[in-house]
Computed example of a mutant assay.
Amino acid sequence: MAVTDEAIEKIRGMIVSGALRPGDRLPKESVLAGELGLSRSSLREAVRALSLVRVLDVRQGDGTYVTSLDPRLLLEALGSVVELQRDGAVLDYLAVRRILEPAATALAGSRIGRDELDALQARLESLGGDSAVEQLVEADLEFHRRTNAACGNPVLRSLLDALAAPATRARVWRGLAREHAVGRALDEHRQILAALRDGDAEAARSWSTVHLAGVERRLRSTP
C-alpha cells in the first residue's frame, strides 16, 4: 500500500471508529502525524485527497475539520466523474439510474406535495416541441431532481442527483429535437406527473421505467 493510501486509511479509520466525528477539528499536523506514525508530508497528501472528496474541510488559518459527511456532500464527487464519462461508460451509469430512479419515483408517489406537483406541471406546460435544447435540459433536470427529492431517502436522492449528468442529457435532447420526438418525451414526463398526482406509486414507477428506457435507447442509437 502506498504511503499516502495508508495515511488516508488511517484517517478514515479514525472517522469510522468515532475517534473523529462530523464537525470535529483534526489535531495539529505534527501531533496527528506522530499519533498515526506518519510523515507530515504523507499526512498532508492524505488530507488533500480527503478534502477533494469532501470528507475533510481545510480552512486556511483555522485548521482542518471533518465535514458533516452528509450523503449529498460526499456524492458530489461522483457527479464530476459522471460528467467526464464518454460512450459506453455513460450507458453504464444510465443503466444504474434506470434501476434506481423508478423506485425513487414510486416512493415520491405518497410523499410529494401539491405545491411541488403544481410547480412541475407549470414548468412542463411552458415547454413545447420548439423549445430550445437548453430550456429542455434545465427543465428535465429540475423535474427529476424534484421528484427524487420527494422519495424520502436522502442517500437515494443524493445518488440520483450525482448521476444527473447535464452533458449527457443535452445529448439526448439534441437527438430528440433531430427526431422531432421532443413532444413524446415531454408526454412521458406528463404521465409520470399524472401518476404522482394520483398517488399511484406503481404507475409512477412504470412510466419512469418507460421514460428512462427510452432515454437509454436513444443514447445507444445517437452517434
Rank of each mutant, 00 (worst) to 15 (best):
G175P: 06
L219C: 12
P22V: 03
T64Q: 04
A164N: 15
Q191W: 00
L163S: 10
I8M: 05
P102A: 03
A149C: 04
L91G: 09
V82N: 04
R12Q: 08
Q60P: 03
T64D: 01
L193M: 06
S42Q: 06
D187F: 00
W173S: 07
R220S: 07
E9N: 09
L50C: 02
D130Y: 00
N153F: 08
A170R: 15
N148Y: 13
P102L: 01
V47I: 15
R97A: 13
D115L: 12
Q60R: 13
E76Y: 12
R178H: 12
V90H: 05
G13Q: 02
Y65H: 11
L160Y: 10
E138Y: 01
A7V: 10
A149G: 14
R114L: 05
G79C: 10
L43E: 12
N153P: 11
A150C: 04
R86C: 05
L36G: 08
L196S: 02
G175Y: 07
V210P: 01
R174C: 13
P71M: 07
R72E: 15
L156I: 12
G199D: 02
G199A: 03
S208R: 03
E101C: 04
P223R: 14
G152F: 07
L193C: 06
V90F: 00
L50P: 05
V31S: 08
A106V: 05
P223K: 08
P22E: 07
V172I: 14
I99Q: 14
V96G: 08
E216C: 02
D200I: 00
G109N: 07
L124R: 13
R48D: 15
R54L: 08
D161T: 02
R197L: 00
L196C: 04
L107C: 11
I11W: 03
T4V: 15
P166Y: 02
L196H: 04
A194M: 00
R178M: 09
L176T: 10
R114W: 01
G128I: 01
R54M: 04
E116H: 05
S51D: 15
